[in-house]
């Protein structure tokens, strides 16, 4: 157990070293996301979403931040694999005495943690410059956020499997990322989606997580009032995670048979 924590610690430390070593890149990431959010926020404010849309700036901010994590969760595993393959250390990392599933989970967790260090300044900057006020119940929010991210890891594993076998999965990744952005309630409320798309959107962990986090933070609902929804989010996320893990292990077996693990 300690060994596995040490493994996770190594990945977090490596990510933090990279963030520090490439500080300019880190600062640019924060700036770009702040500008992107402000663009969307001011655009919506100028053109008006209308009161019937029911979403305020706080909802938009939470949606945007959760989507950033979702995009990170989606991209992280595939990006890490492709990065290791191009840098030439993928096989050496694979020689660690753990499952490749664990390797990717740790790399993604490290990404989430280092990503949070970038998200926090973005959130603070948004709050300071827009005057959006939110009071966040930390533990319930973390629980919902964590379950949502677990489900997104499932998609991350699927994309990592595609990267492993087909070596490039950029377009599949973009497709999922923007699908989540537009059709999971991040900026367009669920009720405004075409009727055929709504059931699809409702079974995605980001939609469920976002809905619950908004209920918790903006509408002030208690976690105890969301028992059914929480259980559903848990089941849904686990299902996506298991499917993702199965696809990744299957892909892993294919590259082991083909001998193409390190080829990129």
């Amino acid at each position: 157990m300690i060994g596995r924590l040490v493994f996770l610690g190594a990945e977090i430390k490596r990510e933090l070293i990279m963030q520090r070593r490439y500080l300019l890149n880190t600062i640019m990431f924060v700036l770009i996301n702040y500008i992107l959010f402000m663009g969307i926020y001011l655009g919506i404010k100028s053109f008006g979403r209308g009161p019937d849309l029911g979403s305020g700036p706080a909802e938009l901010m939470l949606g945007y931040l959760l989507w950033m994590y979702a995009a990170g969760g989606l991209n992280s595993m595939g990006d890490q694999l492709a990065g290791m393959a191009t840098r030439g250390c993928l096989e050496q990392v694979y020689l660690a005495p753990v499952s490749p599933l664990y390797i990717l989970a740790c790399k993604s967790a490290a990404d989430v943690i280092s990503g949070s260090l970038q998200v926090i300044p973005i959130m603070l900057a948004v709050i300071l410059t827009t005057g959006i006020k939110v009071s966040i119940p930390i533990l319930p929010s973390l629980l919902i956020w964590g379950l949502t991210i677990i489900g997104l890891y499932g998609f991350g594993y699927i994309l990592a499997g595609i990267v492993l076998v087909h070596k490039r999965a950029g377009q599949a990744r973009e497709l999922l990322q923007w699908f989540f952005f537009f059709f999971c309630g991040v900026i367009v409320p669920l009720e405004k989606l075409p009727p055929w798309l709504q059931p699809v959107s409702r079974i995605l962990p980001l939609t469920q997580g976002l809905d619950m986090i908004r209920a918790l933070i903006i509408r002030g609902e208690a976690l105890s009032q969301m028992g059914d929804k929480l259980f559903l989010l848990f089941l849904n996320s686990m299902l996506y995670l298991l499917i993702g893990m199965a696809v990744f292990l299957w892909s892993n077996r294919i590259v082991q048979q083909r001998g193409t693990l390190s080829i990129y």
Partner: peptide
């Protein structure tokens, strides 16, 4: 049980 040096420049994280 094993330590491995693979062929070529494929063993290290070059940004560290």
């Amino acid at each position: 049980q094993i330590g491995v040096v693979l062929e070529g420049n494929r063993n290290l994280e070059w940004r560290l």
